[in-house]
Structures are given as structure tokens and as C-alpha cells.
Computed example of a mutant assay.
Amino acid sequence: MRIVHVVTLVSDDGAYGGPTSVAVGQLEECAARGHEVTLVSLWRGRSPAPGRVGAVPLRSRPARALLPGRFTGIMHPLLARDLWRAMGAADAVHIHAGRDLVSLTALVVAALRRKRFVAQTHGMVEPRRSRVVRLFDRVYVPLLRRARGFLVLTERERLALAEVVGPQGPPLRPLPNGVRSRGGSAAGPRRDREVLFLARLHPRKRPEAFVEMAALVHRRVPGARFALYGADEGSLPEVLRLIAAHGLEDVVSYGGALAPAEAVRAQAEAAVYVLPSVDEPFPMTVLQALSVGTPVVCTDSCGIAEELAHRGAAAVTDGSPAALADAVCELLTDEERRHALVAAGHRAVEERFSIRAVTDRLEEIYRDLSSPGLSGVTVPVRDISR
């Protein structure tokens, strides 16, 4: 099959996060199975856009800010032409859709091309009451309803998306994110006492809680070191203030945003990965850490926390700095506990979050795009892994 995915942004710092990572992972596995794949996106970076992202051919244009908003208003006029050409030859079109100009343009082109497509919103399309969103949705939502199906991660996303598109919208089908187990192959030597934060420095990601946790751990495990990586989205000044206030300048470092390959390497080399964010729907960074054998500490509001806790595959906490610190200290000092968590994490990737299983489902969905209707019915997302 000729498969085309559309995502809003590819960048050298991984700024668009999960949707881009998911699209690339899905397409890499499709390509490994012999399908002809293309990713269409905007590009933002210090160098010209690459021709490929990993093994995936990339068709891109430089991102330009046409309207306010970090991602909402970026576009390039010639991207519409690229979408028109790419979709014309496609057997399956998969739009990773947010409320933004790229997604809107992709939906318009799919409609004009009369292409059957599936949409995956990654939790980005929820009910909003602002006047601007209501005006945008007058055009956006009718086009979104033309999808042959929506791929959803969680029950919360299913309910939110159903409210946006209405009861007569397309079927909503559960599809988890998936990763390929990497073992330790992406890593240099493991840094036995390094604790890692790898996410946007945004209030929802709670990098401040990571610094507070670091202060508590440092008192108990003086040799521990802490690294934060990610694009600043408003929290960096407070992070730096807290580092100075606790006297942690030689203990906690901020290294800016990392390119995707560098991010994987950083996770593979860390002793512990901590994601203190709240209401994280389906964090790819957690799955990636599990895939490279790095033990994970997360909060109980993470969308996959219950599954990971049940499997003993992550240290799940209430998200307070004290609870995060307790979990990190245990993993830094208890080798048996650390090994058990890593082994369970590998099993979770292989059995429930494997990109192979995800792509098996995607192939079925893509084949259905050539039939009169998308097979299957809406099912509760609690059955996502069955």
C-alpha cells in the first residue's frame, strides 16, 4: 500500500512531541513491512529539512507563523500543493489532527481529493468554549467528521472527541501508542546516578516538582545528579530560581531541547527517568524509557499508570515531590528493585505497547478504507490492549 501520514510539525528539537514521534514510529514499521510510506509536514530547525526522518521519507516546507499560537498558526502556502500531490497517489491517508492550520489544510485537501482517511487526534481535540475556537470549528469540525474513523488513546479522549464531533460522527476505534524494544543499544555507558527529566518545560509537565524532588533526593543520595531537557514553554525561570534557591547549581543542570535521536540516547544512559506531569494521556517518553531499559517514575494521573502499576513496570506515585523522591531513592539504591522494574517494563512493551501489534491494527484499518464503511464499532477504550 501507499500510505501517507500528515503531522503538523517535524523539528530538530522534537518540539511537537508525541504526535510526530507516533507518526514516525507507525510509518517506520509500515515501511519495514514493505509499504510505500510518506510523511508530510512542516519543518522547523537550524538546518534545511532532511529528506528522511529515520527510515521515513519526509515531504516538508519551512514553518511560517501566519497566525498567533505556537503550533496553531504555523503554515506554508506550498504545503497545500504537497498534500494534494501526496494524497492523490495514496491508498491510505492518516491525519494526525489538531486544531491548527496544517490539519485544517490536510482535511480540506482530503475532501477535495475525495480521499478516505482516518484521523488521530492524540488528545488535542477537546471541547473548547472560546469564541475563536467556535469560529474555527465551524469549518474544522464538518471536515473532521468526514474521517472514516477516529483512532483514540483513552476513554477520556473518546468522550471528549465524541462531544466535539457529535453522535453522528465516525466510529471511534482504540489504538495505543507503540514503540520498538531497543534494549540498551542506543546508549553509551549507563550513568548510574543520573536522574532525567525529558519534556517541555511547561506547567503541566511540572519541571518545578522535578527540582523540588531533586533537592530531597540529594540530601539522601549525595552522589545523584539531575538533568532537565526540553524546550522552554514558560517554566524555565522558575526552574532556575528553584535550582538557585536550593543551592543545586552543581547538581541539577538544564540542557535545552534535544533532537529525537539525542533524546533516546539520553534516556538510555540515565539511571532513572522521571515524568512528574499530570493528566498525561499516553506519554511516549515513558514508553521510550521502558523500551531502552530505563526505570520510570510517573504520576497516578498518567493515562497508562494503572496498567504499568498492575504490571510492576513503573514506580507510580501521587506526584508530590516527596513521593517522587522516595521512588527515585529506592531505584538508585536498590539494585534488585531496579532490575525488576526494567524487566517488567520490557515485558509491557513486548506484550501491550509493541509497535508491531499497533501496526497490525493499522494495516486492517487501512485496508478498510477501500471498503464502503470502516469496519468495527465504537468500543470502550478500557479494552484498548485486548
Rank of each mutant, 00 (worst) to 15 (best):
V252Q: 12
T105V: 15
S60R: 01
S47K: 11
S253I: 08
S354G: 06
L374I: 10
T154M: 03
L135I: 07
E306C: 00
R356Y: 05
G230F: 07
S235E: 14
V108E: 13
V93H: 10
H310I: 00
K115M: 06
E363C: 14
V217R: 09
V211N: 08
I74W: 08
H202C: 06
F136Q: 12
V108C: 10
S11H: 04
R128T: 13
G373K: 12
R386T: 03
L242K: 15
A90D: 13
G178W: 05
R33E: 12
S103F: 08
R158M: 01
V377R: 15
R134W: 01
V141W: 07
S60N: 07
H94P: 11
R311P: 02
L161M: 00
G73W: 06
A327S: 15
S320I: 04
R116I: 00
G14R: 01
S371C: 09
H218K: 13
S60L: 02
V297E: 08
T359W: 07
T317S: 12
E330G: 14
L42Q: 11
A271N: 11
T333P: 10
E330F: 03
P77Y: 03
G98Q: 12
K115S: 14
V349N: 10
P68T: 10
Y254Q: 05
F150S: 03
T8C: 10
D192C: 07
V217Y: 09
G54P: 01
V296Q: 13
E208S: 12
V132S: 15
V292S: 02
V125C: 00
R220D: 10
Q168P: 04
L332F: 05
R70P: 08
L112S: 14
E163Y: 02
Y254P: 02
S291W: 02
V24I: 02
W43D: 04
